[in-house]
């Protein structure tokens, strides 16, 4: 049972921005509703007005150029995991999306909604941050784009302004020889830990430094300082141990149902090792 509210179906971005200004704090943007309606049912949030953005045609599109993917704000996990452009250009993202939540949440829930909710136990942020993805926002004073790591500012907190909506997520495509990998560990509905890594391995060594971002254990996803591993032997267990150690040091896990601080920090080490080993294995 939900308490009474009105749903306003807007059909253009301009109308959505107008509605945001008109209703202010009394309204929330409504996409798949997989988080919003749950929060409203539990009584932790109440909005008399919901602004439904799903009928804005431009927001549903997934497009690609040679060097970037643009995922429209109303594209669902289901759409993304099956999209041929995504599968072709960034198969690691398609796989990640295919393993978000369950099939019903994927069928209705959007990537933009996932980012906008700022729930820490999430899969996409770590990979999007590793790739340097940006959230494209539109508000009364125009368009701006914010890097994902600056967009998610804390637990359930984002840089979205009161008059703005997310219109798309822009994801730069890595160069051909760059590998992208993601591993997660999960005992509940959402990940306990997820680690994304990106790097080039040539003749067994990292070309430059690998990028490693740890998600789900902390209030926000954390990038691991990896500069010292530029050129390191990617197949040497000592390199992987050292990256894992850097990852454990980079996070401040939150104790919750998914585990204690010590347990999560341990997981971070194990899964960082695994994801980095995957980079080396893919390259051979």
């Amino acid at each position: 049972m939900l308490r009474r509210f009105d749903v306003h179906r807007v059909t253009s971005i301009a109308e959505a921005v107008d509605a945001r200004q008109r209703f202010g704090e009394d309204a929330a943007i409504y996409a798949g509703g997989t988080e919003l309606l749950l929060a409203m049912k539990m009584g932790v949030a109440r909005w008399p007005h919901l602004i439904d953005v799903k009928a804005i045609p431009a927001l549903g599109r997934i497009t690609a150029t040679n060097d970037a993917l643009r995922i429209g704000a109303t594209a669902t996990h289901w759409d993304i995991e099956r999209n041929a452009l995504v599968g072709g250009a960034l198969p690691a993202l398609a796989r990640l999306e295919a393993n978000v939540a369950n099939v019903r949440v994927r069928a209705a829930g959007t990537l933009a909604g996932n980012l906008a909710f700022g729930e820490p136990h999430a899969d996409p942020p770590s990979m999007l941050i590793a790739l340097g993805a940006r959230v494209v926002l539109e508000g009364k004073s125009g368009t701006r784009s914010v890097a994902v790591h600056e967009f998610i500012t804390g637990m359930y907190q984002t840089a979205l302004a009161g008059d703005e909506i997310i219109v798309a997520i822009d994801i730069p495509l890595p160069a051909k020889d760059v590998r992208v990998a993601y591993v997660k560990f999960q005992i509940l509905e959402r990940p306990s830990v997820g680690v994304a890594a990106l790097g080039t391995v040539r003749d067994g060594r990292f070309v430059g430094a690998p990028t490693v971002v740890v998600g789900a254990v902390d209030e926000v996803a954390r990038a691991v300082p990896t500069a010292q591993f530029a050129g390191a032997d990617a197949r040497d267990a000592r390199t992987l141990d050292a990256i894992a150690e850097a990852a454990r040091a980079a996070v401040e896990p939150t104790a919750d149902l998914a585990g204690s601080v010590e347990f999560k920090r341990h997981l971070v080490g194990v899964f960082t090792q695994r994801v980095c080993a995957t980079l080396a294995a893919q390259a051979s």
Binding site: V7, G33, T34, L37, L38, K41, W78, A101, N102, V103, R104, V105, A107, A108, E189
Partner: peptide
């Protein structure tokens, strides 16, 4: 009542959804 169990699954436009959390 929270999208976890699937007892409420129906197909909406061919896709499975949790009818407990779908308007």
């Amino acid at each position: 009542d929270s999208q976890v169990c699937g007892a409420c699954t129906v197909l909406l436009d061919g896709r499975p959804v949790s009818s407990c959390t779908t308007l």
